[in-house]
């Protein structure tokens, strides 16, 4: 666009407004990029000087120790969310994009379900955590444990996965479906072999971003997963499970330095984990574009 409007406009007021507009948009960008870089450097600077690799291989002990329990717990929670929310979210995305019958008015079907999904995606996570605590941990006597944490987190990220799956499926060109039809494939077979396969990078991208959200959550986990200094056990209920965000949240303002360092270490591990998830998802986006139509 810029090449067309090479010359500045003749009147002074318009020239001033134009310069102000350009400057302000550059300043706005700086106000986003600046604090973000500051934030990430801050995490690195706080953690790296005291970093010990045995943080990953020891459990918290008194005022020191490591975070092995939390790292493993976070991974267990990730896998659980991937299984529960991944299955439910991808399937409901398929429902919205492919299978829900359009209404007679020609608008997309499943309006009530869609509204529920959107309301849930904007629902305050602490309220979900509270309900998990009173209904599952206390009400069903599960105690602080993995299963209520997984249910609450899955409820939180399912709408996101459903939405990203739906939009990934909608980017699959119609000609692919028509081609499958012309070859005599049944709808279900075509869905599995053609449509989902070509939308797969987009679906996986959504899953990875949902995992990044789940990894970074604190509020819904505090009163569902509880906390423990031991490594994750195989039991779904009655056994609390550790996770990284807990240590960031509780240890940063402890009086003893070595405890504070655990908080900063946990923050660093979290940032690295989230960045890896997001970068991988970004690399996948480039693969999505191979199949998409009308994508820029």
């Amino acid at each position: 666009m810029a090449h067309v409007t090479g010359a500045y406009p003749p009147t002074r007021g318009r020239r001033v407004r134009e310069v102000a507009f350009r400057t302000l948009s550059a300043v706005a960008l700086l106000f986003v990029i600046g604090p973000s870089i500051w934030l990430i450097t801050d995490v690195v600077v706080r953690a790296v000087p005291h970093w010990r690799w045995d943080v990953l291989t020891t459990v918290p002990l008194g005022t020191g120790g490591g975070l092995e329990n939390a790292v493993l717990g976070t991974l267990v929670i990730m896998v659980g969310v991937l299984v529960i929310a991944g299955t439910v979210g991808v399937l409901s995305g398929i429902h919205f994009a492919e299978l829900a019958r359009p209404r007679r008015s020609g608008r997309a079907g499943g309006a009530a379900l869609r509204t529920a999904t959107e309301v849930l995606s904007g629902f305050p996570s602490i309220v979900l955590g509270y309900v998990g605590y009173v209904a599952l941990c206390v009400g069903l006597h599960w105690g602080f444990s993995l299963l209520p944490a997984l249910i609450v987190l899955s409820l939180m990220v399912t709408p996101y996965i459903a939405k990203s799956t739906e939009s990934a499926l909608r980017q699959v060109p119609t000609s692919y479906r028509e081609g499958a039809d012309a070859l005599g494939m049944s709808t279900g077979y075509a869905l599995r072999k053609v449509v989902i396969r070509s939308a797969l990078p987009g679906i996986v991208t959504g899953l990875l971003i949902a995992l990044a959200i789940a990894v970074g959550e604190t509020a819904p986990l505090l009163y569902t997963a509880g906390i423990t200094n031991t490594l994750p056990s195989a039991s779904l209920i009655h056994q609390p499970i550790a996770y990284l965000t807990y240590y960031v949240w509780t240890d940063y303002n402890q009086p003893i330095k070595s405890t504070q360092y655990l908080s900063f270490d946990a923050a660093l591990i979290l940032v690295v984990l989230v960045l890896v998830l997001l970068v991988v998802s970004r690399l996948l986006v480039n693969r999505t574009q191979r199949h998409a139509e009308g994508w820029r």
Partner: peptide, 25 residues
């Protein structure tokens, strides 16, 4: 032939989960 039915039903059940979860909450 039955695969479509399987997809259809599992997807329909899954899409009810957010509504059920919201009602539960």
């Amino acid at each position: 032939g039955s695969e479509e039915g399987l997809w259809r039903w599992s997807a329909r059940v899954a899409s009810l989960v957010p509504l059920a979860g919201l009602a539960f909450v």
